[in-house]
Simulated scan of single mutants.
Amino acid sequence: MKRKYLQVNQWLFSGLLTMLGFSCAGNTDPVDEYGTPSATYHLKGKVVDKQTEQAIPDIRIIITSKKDNLRDTLNTKTNKEGEFEKTYQRFPLSGNLTIVAEDLQANYKKDSVEVSFQKSDFTGGSGNWNWGETTKEITIPLAKTEKDEQ
């Protein structure tokens, strides 16, 4: 008895949803957009000594965004010229990115900068799902640790 009751309710509910779906279609030409909103972010940066402004190689770069659940620590380090570059193709960010520069040799103090993106920063997008791309260039100055300042 209970099984028959559930089958009838399921049939009625499915029929109701079908009718509502057709009644919502209307007579206007619908605009179909498929996919996921996306944007391309190019981050270019340089890590320098705070006093001498000389480039610092082999600094680990950590890129995070708490609001967008992003944490990237995968093999991003500065090159011999102290530069790093990272590109993301992802859902548009709703918060800021925090770029952390960390010296694994402990010669420099860890420091970070905040990078924000506005929709007006993007170029080449469709204006709908694809925001386009943007590039942010940053410099992170690091201070030496006390043991190295002596």
Rank of each mutant, 00 (worst) to 15 (best):
T139W: 00
K147P: 03
T134Q: 04
V113C: 02
G15I: 05
L142V: 11
S116H: 08
N79R: 08
K67V: 14
T73D: 09
I56P: 12
P92M: 00
G127M: 05
G21N: 00
I63W: 04
G127P: 01
Q118G: 06
K144F: 04
E83S: 14
Y88F: 00
T134H: 02
F22D: 03
I61W: 09
S126A: 10
F117M: 04
F22N: 07
Q54E: 15
S120E: 09
V31F: 09
A55E: 02
L16I: 11
Y108R: 03
N69K: 15
T134Y: 01
S116G: 11
P30E: 14
E33R: 14
G35H: 01
T139Y: 01
D111I: 07
F117T: 01
Q150P: 09
F84D: 06
E137Y: 05
T36K: 11
T135Q: 14
V113A: 03
S126F: 05
E83Q: 15
A55W: 00
F84V: 04
K147L: 07
K67P: 05
S116Y: 07
R60P: 00
T98N: 03
T76E: 11
Q10S: 07
T135K: 13
K50H: 09
F22P: 06
L70F: 00
Q7L: 10
F84G: 05
F84R: 09
K77L: 13
A101Q: 01
K144S: 06
L97F: 03
S65H: 04
E83D: 15
P92W: 05
L6K: 07
G95Y: 05
N128G: 10
E81T: 13
L12M: 10
D148P: 03
W129R: 11
E53K: 14
D58P: 02
T73C: 06
I61G: 10
A25F: 14
Q118W: 09
Y34R: 12
W129A: 12
K66V: 12
I140Q: 03
Q51E: 15
P37T: 00
Q150S: 14
T18D: 11
N9D: 10
W131V: 09
E137V: 10
T28D: 15
K67H: 02
L142S: 07
G127E: 10
D72W: 02
I56S: 04
F117H: 07
K147Q: 08
G127Q: 10
T52V: 06
A39V: 08
D111H: 06
T123N: 10
E85H: 14
E114Q: 14
I63N: 06
L74A: 15
D29S: 13
R90V: 06
I62D: 11
P92R: 00
T98P: 00
Y5D: 09
I61H: 07
D72Q: 07
N9G: 14
Y108C: 00
L12W: 04
K110T: 12
K119Y: 06
I61D: 08
Q150V: 13
K2M: 08
